[in-house]
Amino acid sequence: MPDRLPSHAGPFALGTFGDDSRVFPGLVVGPLVRDLSDFAPSVRAVIEDWDDLFPRLTELSQEASSTWYDLAGLRILAPLEPGQILQSGANYRKHVVDLVAAEKESVHGATPEEARADAEKMMDERIRSGVPYVFLGSPRAICGPYDDIVLPEQGEQHDWELELALVIGKPGKNIPAEEAMRYVAAYTICNDLTTRDRLYRPDLKAIGTDWFTAKNADTFLPTGPFLVPAAFVGDPSDVRITLRHNGVVRQDESTKDMIFDIPRLIAYVSSTTTLRPGDLLLTGSPAGNGAHWGVFLKAGDVMESEITGLGHQRNTVRSGQ
C-alpha cells in the first residue's frame, strides 16, 4: 500500500484490487471498497456495458448493507486490462516548443530568441492545420500505480512522461469531434516511461524511431490507481498534472496546454480504427521530462505523480540486471 490513501473526485471510482487469495474488481467510495465480483467479472466488463451499468453503480455506492473492505488492507493494481492503448505524442505546446527551439539553437545556430519565436510560430500553425501524432502501446507494459519500475538492461536514458488517460465507454468509428466526449467513460493516470537512447535505430536510419523498444518494457506504463467516471471529473481540459522525481517537482502543467484536445484526439484516432469499450487513450505529456532537465531514472529513485481528482502514484525504480 502507498504511504497515503489515494483520493478521487466524485462519489465513487472503480479499480482492481488484490488480497492474499484473489484479485477482484471493486467500487471505491472514499477509504472503502465494495467487491464487484457478484456484479461483473472485471472492471473491463463494467466498461463494456457502461451506459446501462453506471446507474446501478450509483445505487451500489449507497448500499450500506453491502460488504465493504478497507482500502488500506488491499493491494491496488492497475485498474483495467485495456483493449487498444493509443498514445498521443508531442501534444503539449510548451513541451514541443522547448524541443524544437533547442534543436534550432544546437543544429541551426539560431539565437534563443529566434529559435523560440520560430518554434512558437510552428506550433500555432500546427494547431490551426495539423493533425495529432498517435502510436500504439503494448498492454504488457502496464503495471500498478504503486509497483516498482524495473529498468531494462538495454539503454541508460530512462525518462518519465506523466499523462492524463481516458477510457472509451462505447464503440465508435469516424466519431465527429463535437460528439466525442459522449464516448468517454472515465479517466485515469498513466506514466508513459521512455528509454530515450533506444528511441532511434542507428542500424535503420531510413525507418527512424523504434517506439516498441523505447516505450514497452515491462512496468513502463504504471496506470491508476482508479478509473474515475467522466461525470465526476469536471473539465478535463483544465486539470493539473504534477510529477515529483526524488521530491523535486519536474512536471507541473495544466491540460490547457494541449495542442489537440480530447475531442480532436478521439475524432482523429477513430478515423483510422474502430474504438471499443475499454480502449485506453493517452493524451500526451507536458513539459518537464527528464531529457529537459538532463536527469534520467536510476535504481533507488522515487516518482510521485498526481492528476487533479484522479489520485496519485508512487513508484520506486530498481534495476532489472
Rank of each mutant, 00 (worst) to 15 (best):
I85G: 01
E103H: 14
G109P: 11
G89L: 15
E114C: 00
A101V: 06
R116S: 02
D124I: 05
V97I: 15
R126S: 11
L77Y: 06
I76D: 02
M122F: 07
D118A: 11
R75P: 03
A110D: 13
A119L: 03
V96W: 05
Y92C: 08
E113S: 07
E113T: 09
S88L: 12
Y92L: 12
Q87P: 00
A117C: 01
A119F: 08
R116A: 03
G109Q: 10
D118M: 06
R116V: 00
V107S: 13
N91A: 10
N91T: 13
A110C: 11
G83M: 02
V100F: 03
S88F: 09
T111W: 03
E114A: 13
A115L: 01
A115P: 05
H108Y: 10
P112K: 09
K121W: 10
V96T: 04
I76K: 01
D124Q: 13
A119K: 06
Q84G: 15
E125R: 08
E103K: 15
H108W: 05
E105A: 02
P79T: 12
Y92R: 08
A119E: 10
K121V: 06
A101L: 01
D124K: 14
H95Q: 01
S88Y: 09
V107Y: 10
I76L: 14
S88V: 15
R116E: 01
A115R: 03
E105Q: 15
G83L: 04
Y92K: 07
I76N: 01
R126G: 07
R126T: 12
H95K: 00
